[in-house]
Design a protein around this nucleic acid. Structure first.
Lengths: 111, 111
DNA sequence: TCCTTTACTCAGTTTTACCTGACTTAGTAG
DNA sequence: CTACTAAGTCAGGTAAAACTGAGTAAAGGA
């Protein structure tokens, strides 16, 4: 009983559930992946690399990822505008875990 | 150009996207977690441990996880029925990656 | 003068995920 | 003869995630 209660609390603000929420969704991993491979990308460069994403989704997801601290947005006050995105240190720290997950996924795919 | 094409293909059947799909959704991690902590659980034991899940979702998600090879379902032909669920070896193999992700999540939560 | 570029924003709609509450089957206990 | 247990199933409904297609500003080029 006491143990079950603590399990329920775990699920509430479980760090794993938290992690899954910040990297979940259709577009976040592709963005992380593109920024990992290219270090810094402008808005339209990201858009060209991520097949099928709309302006709406890209700008929304970038904003959310900036708030959660995965990416940094650097704006240059030029005309035409220039905005560069890159991973924060925390965003980069995430990559080894993702690679481990990817290895597992690959193993599952050709089982 | 050639490189961008290969990036797009990566995203299509990317092992990481695959992994995220099989462990994503609201209930899969709680189920994996409960079976990791308890080794083997019956349907109603799982249901009691996973706060708020409905029969509909539990049976649906268990069926999907059995198909993807995360869990095994063992049925005993008794009355009243008895069905036991546990992680497959692949399901257990996943846990270290999840723990790494969880450590990252914890770090992010109290930053 | 009109078109192009960059980095977005927005109203409205579709698609997907998830939930609600009732029902089933077969045997045992009261 | 009614209630209870286990392990589900099912039709229908809501909520959340994603998409559609258009529009914005400000400067430079043809």
């Amino acid at each position: 009983m006491l143990q079950e209660e603590s399990q329920k609390r775990d699920i509430q603000n479980c760090p794993l559930t938290y992690a899954m929420n910040v990297i979940g969704g259709k577009w976040r991993l592709p963005i992380i992946w593109a920024l990992w491979k290219n270090d810094t990308l402008r808005y339209n460069e990201l858009k060209r690399r991520i097949d099928g994403i709309t302006n709406m989704m890209l700008s929304q997801v970038l904003k959310e990822m900036e708030i959660t601290g995965l990416i940094v947005r650097k704006q240059y006050l030029e005309i035409p505008p220039r905005v560069e995105y890159s991973l924060t240190q925390e965003g980069k720290d995430l990559v080894p875990s993702l690679e481990a997950l990817a290895r597992w996924g690959k193993h599952m795919q050709n089982r």
